[in-house]
Design a protein around this nucleic acid. Structure first.
Lengths: 132, 132
DNA sequence: CAGAATCCATAAAGATACTG
DNA sequence: CAGTATCTTTATGGATTCTG
């Protein structure tokens, strides 16, 4: 493999570039919730259901480094920090909106296929057929 | 935790539902390329740069099970199989389009931040500061 | 409140070799 | 051509404990 001397990632397409920024389980959700309202850390954590401190902080830091979110520390005690989208982040949130709408429009169908997935992942894979 | 008796996944929002379908490194790209043209397996593999057979097949199967893509096997020899989007898949591809556009519009900026990321991930993390 | 640090289990992804 | 199968590595995520 020698070394990858291509400094620029050279994306195959726009979508490829976008995915480098928001791929992952939490980032799209974080950006989306921040587009609804700037949020203090704790609120954001409650909004993004199921996320842990570790993941939320980690993803927020990456988004901050990537110029998507801005972190403001009020340096008060008890601590108060809030996160807002940068202009770049807001434009990204806009691009995310159709995905939200798609999910809403097709939620029933999505729910169905996911339920089926969980079924056969719950099956022992050798479900002994009942005597025939 | 007892057992999770909630059969329906109960999404927190539309975006959450969407992500259950296309989360991952490859699925958005697969759906996108299939929206440009239906593709034979080999062509798709070349289009989605860097994907392995294992991943491509795996993701295609899931997308098929989720009603996003349709697989047509011509049962010829040598084998010929092509993949197309279902109507649901086409609507999803439409929702993905703004993300493509965002990536294209901001490709330079995205390239910059990614290059920076790779820099400090290349650094030994204990770059001995030069004697002060 | 807003994190940081550590440990651990699992899932996603990659490499390689093989097949009808 | 269009996959399978197996193995290894890496990334993701969760639980817990700790701190200013």
């Amino acid at each position: 493999m020698a070394e990858n001397s291509s400094i620029e990632p050279s994306f195959t397409c726009g979508l490829d570039a976008t995915l480098r920024i928001i791929a992952g389980k939490w980032k799209p959700l974080i950006v989306y919730f921040l587009s609804l309202s700037s949020n203090r850390y704790g609120e954001l954590r409650r909004a993004v259901k199921g996320v842990s401190d570790k993941m939320l902080i980690q993803q927020l830091k990456e988004l901050e480094a990537d110029g998507i979110v801005h972190r403001h520390d009020y340096k008060e005690v008890p601590p108060r920090v809030d996160y807002t989208l940068t202009p770049l982040g807001r434009s990204l949130a806009g691009a995310l909106a159709p995905l939200c709408a798609w999910g809403s429009d097709n939620m029933v169908e999505v729910g169905r296929v996911l339920a089926e997935r969980e079924q056969w992942s719950r099956e022992p894979a050798d479900a002994q057929l009942p005597v025939a």
